[in-house]
Design a protein around this nucleic acid. Structure first.
Lengths: 346, 346
DNA sequence: TTGAAAGCGCTAACAA
DNA sequence: TTGTTAGCGCTTTCAA
């Protein structure tokens, strides 16, 4: 009944059915213009009648293209975060935005986007998958300074583009937001609100993005004459934000402004601040980073530094396509401008 | 410098290098036992020396296997949820758990898991990808009653397994949790706590899982002699939970127990209840569903009905593998038992 | 145990 | 404009 023990129809069979050569059917399928309209019609009927679907393996064996690219989220090793990798990844709106942005440019081109999560146990598999020519290239979300994956992929000749400044120099393109400029906007705002004790909750400091934001914070508060640089390291999760906020409150009870390195942690921090009896923004003003959907769900809605993630992902896709088409061309990176979005929290 | 204009080494080249035939190299690669240990050594050296990696396309052209299976998350059409599909999907810990569970069984077998999101714009692409034989089968997360995808895939002969009871009868296996039993446990607990006005916040009622949970709720409260069945429809997101809780509070200010159809909504509901001055669990007891990571992040920590998602996903993978190996065999479905996890909220 | 040879289904020169 | 033909890189009989 399931009846698929029989093989799917081949080009050859369609050709026989239509009474033409394989080459002609191939041309019709690939939209080559030099085919007699009448014949094309005949072939199309034959395709419909036989239910023909091209065999991808056969095609890519000769074209050396697969028309699909991978989105790889990588984590070099278990750093004892409270939340495991998969949970963190699938709980943060970030990946959804990246996917959306990449799809936007890939889909019209008929290119498939396949998603891979490369935590240490999966790492080898993903590497093999990419090497075996299953995809034409990879968009790499690699956030840790010491992640060897980007370097390895480049060495293997897999075209790729990174989602942010790589921790170690890698001969490949990347896309990033001007982290420091973003933080600067946030701190300027807090200072403009008259806050005198401005602190920050950082991301994991083994991530370039987190380092950049902390460095930006240092520079920004210094510019406003604040000599102390109170910071607590978080992990970019809601729970981490809560923990960090508690630590911060204990060490700096007089804090009146907080720049939190992402929205998820800001949400957690907001909860803790308010449970501790601080009014936001009156007692403590809070600004996040990302402008993800989480920012809108905060109570009160979160002021935040907007990162145009979708656009950035689209650009990554473009860069990758270029890289695939012209492997010789030298890497090019694109830096986007952040924007301060003001809501109720600061 | 990037130097990959040159083609990767082929089996043939490795064979020449090692001074043996292609067949022998192939045997070594595929772990065939009948190869002289000495020769095997030679070949392995040759493989290492040349940096050989099998060409997947060529292999699967002959074996008709790809050793990869797809995890497809499907949504039939835009139902005007507040939160868009990708955001919802990548914000809910559910998918991470499914991935983890499936990987657990697939990885040791050397099978790749590739993730696809099939919302309406991507749908056609994903279908094509699956039909073209890019994967050996698919794990399908399809939550809507009227999603045609499962039926279409089955018709196309793509082996698949569903993540819950399908809305329409489909000739394929699925895995599910005993929804009604789970809800029953929750309601029994609330009733046991002496709650007299027990309400529920449901998932989208065009999802079988949401329907089952509501039906289970009906039956359970009736069993405790509560004739009224107060419910508000939610959307399985945090924000949706907040909105639903507000509605509920307005229509049933005397509510003292709430069963919320998933943890994310329960988190939102908790916030709203508390902002409205209700103490949890004293004034209102709340129980969620899933036992996802969100349950632990709630304030107070959420009592919830545990669904063994990882295990269920592992079983899906097993079922799919069986289905791939023995296409003739008739579909088999597996129902898991839920478990009530008591924390502070009820 | 090893090798020779025949394809898997497709695209792309090249000829006609 | 169409058809013929030669592979793409691999696995797998079948002989040796």
């Amino acid at each position: 009944m399931t009846g698929s023990d029989t093989r799917p129809p081949t080009l050859e069979q369609v050709a026989n059915y239509a009474g033409v050569s394989r080459a002609t059917v191939s041309r019709v399928i690939n939209g080559v213009q030099t085919v007699d309209p009448e014949l094309r019609r005949t072939v199309e009927r034959a395709i419909a009648a036989t239910g023909y679907v091209p065999n991808l393996a056969a095609r890519s064996l000769v074209t050396r293209r697969t028309d699909s690219i991978a989105l790889v989220v990588s984590e070099p090793e278990n750093r004892g975060y409270e939340t495991p990798f998969l949970t963190r990844t699938f709980t943060d709106p970030y990946l959804g935005r990246v996917t959306a942005g990449a799809q936007e440019v890939l889909r019209p081109l008929g290119i498939h986007l396949v998603i891979f999560l490369a935590d240490p146990p999966a790492r080898e598999h993903v590497m093999r998958y990419l090497r075996q020519g299953h995809v034409d290239g990879a968009l790499l979300i690699s956030s840790h300074v010491d992640d060897p994956l980007p370097g390895q992929l480049v060495d293997l000749g897999v075209p790729c583009v990174l989602s942010c400044r790589p921790g170690q120099p890698v001969h490949t393109s990347y896309v990033d937001v001007d982290q420091r400029a973003g933080v600067r906007m946030a701190v300027d705002r807090l200072a403009g609100l008259g806050r005198r004790c401005i602190a920050t909750i950082t991301g994991p400091l083994d991530m370039p993005a987190a380092q950049d934001r902390l460095a930006g914070f240092r520079a920004a508060v210094a510019a406003h004459g604040q000599t102390d640089v109170p910071y607590v390291e978080g992990d970019f999760t809601r729970g981490g934000g809560e923990r960090a906020a508690r630590t911060l409150l204990a060490s700096h009870p007089d804090v009146d402004g907080v720049f939190v390195a992402n929205d998820l942690m800001a949400d957690g921090a907001l909860r803790v601040l308010q449970e501790a009896g601080r009014r936001v923004p009156d007692d403590v003003a809070v600004i996040g980073f990302d402008d993800s959907t989480a920012a809108l769900e905060c109570h009160p809605p979160l002021s935040t530094v907007r990162q145009p993630v979708e656009e950035m992902a689209g650009e990554m896709a473009q860069l990758l396509l270029t890289r695939i088409r012209e492997p010789g061309r030298s890497p090019r990176s694109v830096i986007f401008n952040p924007e301060l979005i003001l809501r109720a929290s600061a």
